[in-house]
């Protein structure tokens, strides 16, 4: 079995995250880039299957600037077999459709039986790439899974929504996306980091994948304007002296919210 895991480099949520007010793109200088936590869980899901099924290959696939190499190598250090890194200056600011077409072409290149992605990236938060990739690849999508059961030739899992729990299944090949209900990614070890240095790491541009970036026949979604909201200010803060509940009730009534 060959599993492709889609991994994204994002600004660390613990740092200050900013958009460039001119381009509307993530300001990569504002905070440290990291492997998205949800994608660590996606890698973990693939690795735990590989642990139990020797011979399983786990290829990580990322579309990211050249500077993302260390982030991608982290997935190799966790235990993935190989990496395909799509690097192309002309993909800066790629919209969702272009991103999905690039990732689908990369997965095709890798040749996977199963694609695992995160359900929602922490910077874009679009939560649509996995389904778009599935459509481009002509595969079923099982998105937002909070449990994952994988066999040689099929995948199944549960999706929990406000309305209830949906149980879905599909024969392979298929695309799945997982939620943070799945286990956290494993820690990297010194041995893993050393081994990662010797693992296959391929870098490609869009043209090598057969993707036309500037196709005048295909519409794009573009940014028109970006604005920053003023940060919130702290208001009143009191220390409870036995009557804070009453004071709060009075505040809520005065604000017209109770």
């Amino acid at each position: 079995m060959k599993i492709a895991v889609l991994i994204k480099e994002v600004p660390d949520t613990w740092g200050e995250r900013r958009l460039d007010l001119e381009t509307g793109l993530t300001d990569r200088a504002a905070s440290a880039p990291v492997l998205d936590e949800i994608d660590e869980r996606a890698v973990e899901a693939a690795l735990s299957y590989a642990d139990a099924h020797p011979g399983t290959e786990v290829a990580v696939v990322a579309m990211a600037p050249a500077s993302a190499t260390a982030t991608i190598r982290k997935a190799l250090a966790m235990g993935a077999t190989s990496a395909l890194h799509v690097v192309d200056e002309s993909l800066r600011g790629a919209d969702l459709l272009l991103t999905a077409e690039v990732l689908a072409a990369a997965v095709r290149r890798v040749g996977a039986d199963l694609v695992i992605a995160g359900n929602l990236s922490t910077d874009g938060g679009a939560g649509v790439i996995p389904a778009m990739v599935a459509e481009s690849l002509g595969m079923p999508q099982l998105t937002g899974l909070s449990s994952l059961e994988l066999t040689d030739d099929a995948v199944a899992g549960d999706r929990v929504s406000d309305a209830g729990t949906l149980r879905v299944s599909a024969p392979l090949p298929a695309v799945v996306s997982v939620t943070e209900a799945l286990p956290e990614g494993r820690f990297t070890t010194f041995k893993g980091i050393m081994a990662a240095k010797k693992k296959p790491y391929e870098t490609m541009d869009a043209a090598a994948l057969g993707v036309v970036v500037e196709d005048p026949a295909v519409p794009r979604y573009i940014m028109l304007a970006v604005a920053e909201r003023p940060p919130r200010q702290a208001g009143t803060r009191i220390v409870d002296e036995g009557d804070a509940g009453e004071k709060l009730a009075a505040f809520l009534v005065a604000e017209g919210v109770a």
Binding site: R17, R18, R220, V226, A227, E228, R229
Partner: peptide, 8 residues
């Protein structure tokens, strides 16, 4: 923290 406007 940011508001963004976009168009096709």
């Amino acid at each position: 923290a940011f508001t963004v406007e976009g168009a096709p």
